[in-house]
Design a protein around this nucleic acid. Sequence first.
DNA 1: GTCTATATATGGATAGAC
DNA 2: GTCTATCCATATATAGAC
Lengths: 197, 197
Amino acid sequence: MVQQSQPGAARERVLAVALDLFARHGVNGTSLQMIADEIGVTKAAVYHQFHTKDEIVRAVAAPAFERLYRITEEAERKRRRSERAETILAGIVDLVVDNRRLSAVLQTDPAVTHIVRARPEMQDLERRITTLLAGPDPDDDLLLGTVMVSGGLMNVATDPRLAGFDDERLRRHLLSVARRLIRLRPPPAPKEEPQVT
Amino acid sequence: MVQQSQPGAARERVLAVALDLFARHGVNGTSLQMIADEIGVTKAAVYHQFHTKDEIVRAVAAPAFERLYRITEEAERKRRRSERAETILAGIVDLVVDNRRLSAVLQTDPAVTHIVRARPEMQDLERRITTLLAGPDPDDDLLLGTVMVSGGLMNVATDPRLAGFDDERLRRHLLSVARRLIRLRPPPAPKEEPQVT
DNA sequence: GTCTATATATGGATAGAC
DNA sequence: GTCTATCCATATATAGAC
């Protein structure tokens, strides 16, 4: 086994292995022993990096949620509703495509829900994203499309039937399908005047 | 505590409580102790009904999968592709609406995936459903829409943002959104006017 | 940073009384 | 059908040596 001597390398190794195991077995189905075994160290070595299991879960999830937060802030600065929706949608699709395995874990794992998403600022973030996607007063179909986008995109990314899609192909079709779900017209090409909805 | 004296009542009580806990904490996050506590009996009493935890999981999931199997068989007997897709889609939507909480567990819980969905006949069933929805040779957009339907419907059913939808309202909009995703025209309804996408 | 060893709690599961 | 009591494995977590 090659020794990792860069600073923080051991920490990153734990996070990478943890993510892989979380995606396969769920957070509650993954023990610290499994993580340690996969790396080839003991549990105590893992505990040297993270003092609790929750800490590992938060560290695995943190980068994605921080990115989601930044995308949300950016989208909220746009003036028109279509711009806001397009920005948050494209941002989420990019995020999902860049973190295919992570997405499903963050979206559906009950442990993640309890540890990360239950926090008030997370619930607030999810509410803001819903508003960005659906606008302030959506009808039933639009609301349901929005729910399916915010929940379904993550599932789709990990589905084995789409394993053969490379990132660019997955991104393009995810965007296309998601836009239809929230009745969003594709944005105008650069250098053109925006069209009125 | 009222004694349940009907035959099979204790068994049904375990299944109902287990489903509720599975939906909230996931299968791996639910211990037999939690199930027993929720009912107000001891672990041993639960073990009298089910000899292993896997057995409980299978018993919780079984009715939904049997119903899914019957719907699939029925859909495959239809002659036209649109009829097959409409039958399986409407059947799945009904199934999801009738079992809102169960759906997400069955679809996304890693323990369920390992215990139930990993079985060859289950994988075969899921493959047949994909073919029913998408046809034999789907393009990228249709395949992705199909994946989103088969994965996303279940998520949608449990989303708190749709908690206020009654069954009929949820069913109607799920069908509408799902049909758009797989580019399926609504069937000629007896008293409803067909919608144009 | 990693190890051995251990503390403590809880998990699934069984035996046998009532 | 339900109980108490118990077995054994594994879980998270900590202490202290190297």
